Amino acid sequence: MHVAEAGTGPLVLLLHGFPELWYSWRHQLPVLAAAGYHAVAPDLRGHGRTQAPVDVEDYGMAAHVADAVGVLDALGESTAVLVGHDWGASTAWAAAELHPERFTAVAAPSVPDRPRSPRPPLTELRSFAGDRFNWMLYFQEPGVAEADLSADVARTMRLMMYGLSGDAGDTGVRMVTGLPRDAVLLDQMPEPEAPAAWLTETDLAYYVDEYERTGFTGGLNRYRNADLDWELLPELGTGVIAQPALFVGGDLDTAVRFADPNRMRNHIPNLTGPIVLPGAGHWIQQERSDEVNHALLTFLRTVD
């Protein structure tokens, strides 16, 4: 496992999402270090410079939670504060629920925690989607999304980063609710008129170089375990997360719009927030790094 780290002090473990890398935390690492924390951001399994298992089943939630625990063990730490974005947020919530003795607090930009669904997640999604396009369902068939996303990695990263950001306005909502089932995902995303202030050409090039080398299968295999996770971890999403918790989201993020984060209070009694930033999209710790850093540091001080 490849990790980027900065600083010394109490451990803060940062888990990225898809299609991201440790690099999505580039604005948080130095700030956390300067505040007296040991900030560690790994490339998750199958991403960047971390080993990529071959089997789809090796990308399930149990494996990702075990990786998070394994980082603590490798660093000789008994506990950490866990911060996750996108799929990393889902892993952070799961790890906090399954291993409260190791993760003393949890923060999740963008993706709220959700209770266990009554039916397997893909069944729920097919019912929700009907005759509309759905990302999760599109990602299920091995090889299909890989071919689309890998055809032009620079275009893929440019469109996905822009299309789900606050810069694109309601584009993300249209892609979730307004596309026909047979839509070609990238063809529905608008081209940015200019480089984003939060994502320079150098930033974009880092992502492009890494995904051109590795492909997208590692990240896509995470989606392909949704139903298996539901079967193998029946306790997940059924208990209370008692640790201090923080949620920060953007009001233009579809993950916030379609899952009211206020409902988390029912099973996360020590929740700070939800903090919802106007005009922010899905890549919130990159788009609005100053505000996210302020929220994280304020939260960490209360945990200390």
Rank of each mutant, 00 (worst) to 15 (best):
Tyr138Thr: 02
Glu97Met: 08
Gly219Pro: 07
Gly281Ala: 09
Arg49Ile: 08
Glu235Asn: 12
Leu300Val: 07
Phe18Cys: 09
Val69Asp: 06
Gly178Lys: 10
Tyr37Cys: 00
Gly36Arg: 09
Trp135Ile: 01
Ala259Cys: 14
Glu201Ile: 00
His267Val: 10
Phe258Gln: 11
Ile268Arg: 11
Glu97Gln: 15
Ile275Gly: 01
Ala242Gln: 14
Glu291Met: 04
Trp283Ala: 01
Phe258Cys: 04
Leu246Thr: 04
Phe103Gly: 02
Ala63Ser: 13
Ser110Tyr: 02
Val81Cys: 05
His64Val: 07
Glu193Tyr: 00
Gly250Lys: 01
Ala92Trp: 07
Asp209Asn: 14
Ala68Gln: 07
Met160Asn: 08
Pro112Arg: 03
Glu212Phe: 02
Tyr211Asn: 03
Asn266Met: 08
Ser127Asn: 13
Thr272Leu: 06
Glu291Ile: 00
Pro100Asn: 13
Asp182Gly: 07
Leu164Arg: 09
Val303Asn: 09
Leu186Asn: 09
Leu271Phe: 12
Leu44Met: 15
Ala89His: 04
Leu72Ile: 08
Glu210Thr: 11
Phe299Asp: 01
Ala194Glu: 15
Arg224Thr: 02
Asp290Asn: 07
Leu82Tyr: 01
Pro274Tyr: 03
Leu233Gln: 11
Arg288Asp: 00
Tyr211His: 11
Leu271Cys: 10
Arg301Asn: 12
Leu204Gly: 05
Leu252Glu: 00
Tyr207Asp: 01
Thr217Trp: 04
Pro234His: 11
Leu21Val: 04
Met264Gln: 15
Leu13Pro: 02
Ala147Phe: 08
Ala295Glu: 09
Ile275Asp: 07
Tyr211Ala: 09
Leu220Ile: 06
Arg102Met: 13
Ala66Arg: 11
Gln188Met: 12
Ala96Gln: 05
Asp67Cys: 07
Ala226Gly: 10
Val240Arg: 14
Thr91Val: 15
Ala147Tyr: 06
Gly7Phe: 06
Asn134Val: 00
Ala41Pro: 03
Leu300Pro: 03
Gly70Ile: 10
Glu210Asp: 11
Ala94Glu: 09
Trp22Cys: 04
Thr200Asp: 11
Leu186Asp: 10
Arg114Asp: 10
Ala95Leu: 11
Gln286His: 13
Gly281Cys: 05
